[in-house]
Computed example of a mutant assay.
Amino acid sequence: MPYEPPTHRVERSLRATTGAKIVAGVDEVGRGAWAGPVTVCAAVTGLRRPPEGLTDSKLLSVKRRNELAELLNGWVTAHALGHASSEEIDELGMTASLRLAAVRALEALPVRPDAVILDGKHDYLGAPWRVRTVIKGDQSCVAVAAASVIAKVHRDALMAELAPEHAEFAFEENAGYPSPVHRAALEERGPTPHHRLSWAFMDALPRWQHLKRTRCDPAEQIGLF
């Protein structure tokens, strides 16, 4: 389907209304996975024309996403990545883990942003950061779209690196997300050290209930069989 290319409209608005000179776009990947970290990218792009075809990473083919990520690594003014591990997700819950990963990404930037454009409806970042939330920002905002692509490609590569150790789980194909192969491997082999042991998918694994962890916020449990 055709889509409107992302623009700098929100960034220009932040510059005009708040005086922000450096604006970072922030997006995450891995929120709905059963295994692996949640990964956040913070990207600063300025107001330059973006590479052709830039949009939300989920709308791109694997080939095009990888091509764009390579282009973006040299095109963005600055970018950094932050992760929260499966252990941290189990301990803190997803909202706090998203904030942890986002702060790690923002603090790793070589410049401190004056404002942040955060993809989605909820501000999981909060003070002291000046945040503008934008629903579908990964489609409409250049910096957020760039962060979306870089984060997705980076996390997919991380999960592919784990695949040889856990071949039955096909992490190189599903990146730790739910899939029939992933489900079958869980039932047969049990969770790996990279799985989120407090998540609801564990309830469907009677052989492995002794490994299940109690989650701090049961309302956040997702990923049922």
Rank of each mutant, 00 (worst) to 15 (best):
E172H: 10
E188F: 13
A143D: 05
E172R: 06
M159C: 02
S61N: 11
A108I: 03
P6D: 05
T55Y: 04
E91Y: 11
S61P: 06
E91I: 11
D119M: 03
R99K: 12
V62E: 10
V26S: 01
S13P: 15
S57V: 06
G36V: 00
I117L: 08
S61H: 09
R64G: 11
N66E: 15
V134H: 04
L98V: 09
G223H: 09
V116K: 01
R189K: 15
A184K: 13
T18P: 10
G32I: 10
D56W: 02
R215I: 14
T214K: 10
Y124F: 06
Q139G: 08
G30S: 03
L106T: 05
A146Q: 01
D123Q: 10
N73Y: 15
L224W: 15
N66D: 11
E188C: 14
A84M: 04
R215V: 12
V44A: 02
V26L: 00
L211W: 03
R9Q: 15
L60S: 03
V142F: 06
A101D: 01
A157S: 12
L109Y: 04
E165I: 14
A24T: 03
D90H: 05
G53P: 03
A147S: 04
K121M: 14
P180R: 08
G53L: 08
G19R: 11
G190Y: 06
S179I: 04
E52W: 14
G32E: 03
A163I: 07
G30K: 00
M202K: 00
A146N: 05
A33G: 09
V131I: 08
P180L: 10
P128K: 10
K136R: 14
G190A: 06
V23G: 02
G25H: 06
A145R: 04
V10S: 09
A24S: 05
T95A: 08
K121N: 10
Y124T: 07
A167K: 11
G176Q: 01
T192V: 13
T133I: 05
L14A: 09
H154A: 14
I22L: 13
E188M: 15
C41H: 01
E161C: 13
S179H: 05
F201M: 10
P37G: 03
R15F: 06
A146V: 08
D138N: 13
F169N: 00
Q139A: 09
A163V: 09
H210E: 12
L158I: 10
A127N: 12
T45R: 03
T192A: 13
G190V: 04
W208I: 07
P206I: 05
V103F: 01
L92T: 11
R15Y: 10
W199S: 04
R196E: 00
E161A: 11
A24M: 07
C41I: 12
D217I: 14
L186T: 05
S148M: 02
A185P: 00
R65E: 13
T192Q: 11
P37T: 07
A170L: 15
L59P: 04
V10Q: 09
A16C: 09
N66T: 14
F201C: 09
R49Y: 14
L47W: 14
E173A: 12
